[in-house]
Amino acid sequence: MPETRTYHGQCHCGAVRYTATTDLGSLMDCNCSRCRRLGWVMQSVPAENFELLSGADKLVDYRFNTKAIQHLFCRDCGIESFARGQDREGRELVMINVNALDDAPAVDRATIMHWNGAEA
C-alpha cells in the first residue's frame, strides 16, 4: 500500500500552488470529453487534506454537464491542477491532477482505475 504523505502541486506558471496529503492509492483516469483531452490522472483527496497556498485570485471556474464539479484553472497559464466537488455522501473533496504534482512518482496508466465518464 502506498505511503501517505504531503505532496506539492502547482499550475504551469507557478501562480497556483497547493499541498495535498494522500497516499496516491486510488489513482484513476476518465474518458469523458474533457478528461480525455486533458490527460488527467486523478486522485481524490478529502477537502481537509488539501491546502491552497497561493493563487486563489488566479483561479477561474469552469462547469459543464451536471455543473456539480468546480473545474478550477489558472487564468495565466490555463492549467487545471485540481477541481472541487463532493462525493456521493455529500462530503467535500478535491480531485487533484497527479500530473501537476512536483514530487509524484511516475504513473503506469495500465495499473490505475478507468472511469467511464463518457457514458456516465
Rank of each mutant, 00 (worst) to 15 (best):
G14I: 07
D23T: 01
C74Q: 10
D103Y: 02
N31C: 04
V45E: 03
G117E: 04
R75G: 11
I112T: 06
E80T: 09
G25M: 05
A100E: 01
R63D: 04
Q43G: 01
D76Y: 07
I69E: 09
F73P: 02
D102R: 15
I79N: 11
A56K: 12
E48V: 13
R88L: 13
K58S: 14
V16M: 09
L93S: 10
V107H: 08
G39Y: 07
N97Y: 03
D103N: 12
R88T: 12
E80L: 01
Q70M: 07
C74P: 06
T6M: 10
H114L: 02
V16L: 07
L72C: 07
F50P: 08
P105C: 07
M95Q: 11
D61K: 14
D102Q: 14
T4A: 08
G78H: 08
I112W: 07
P105H: 05
M42K: 08
A100N: 02
G25L: 08
D108E: 06
A68D: 12
G9M: 04
D108V: 00
S26A: 15
L53R: 15
V16S: 09
G90P: 02
C74Y: 10
F73L: 14
R34L: 13
L38S: 12
C30L: 01
G78A: 11
A118F: 01
R36M: 03
F64V: 09
V94A: 00
K67V: 03
V45R: 04
A15V: 11
G14T: 04
L27N: 01
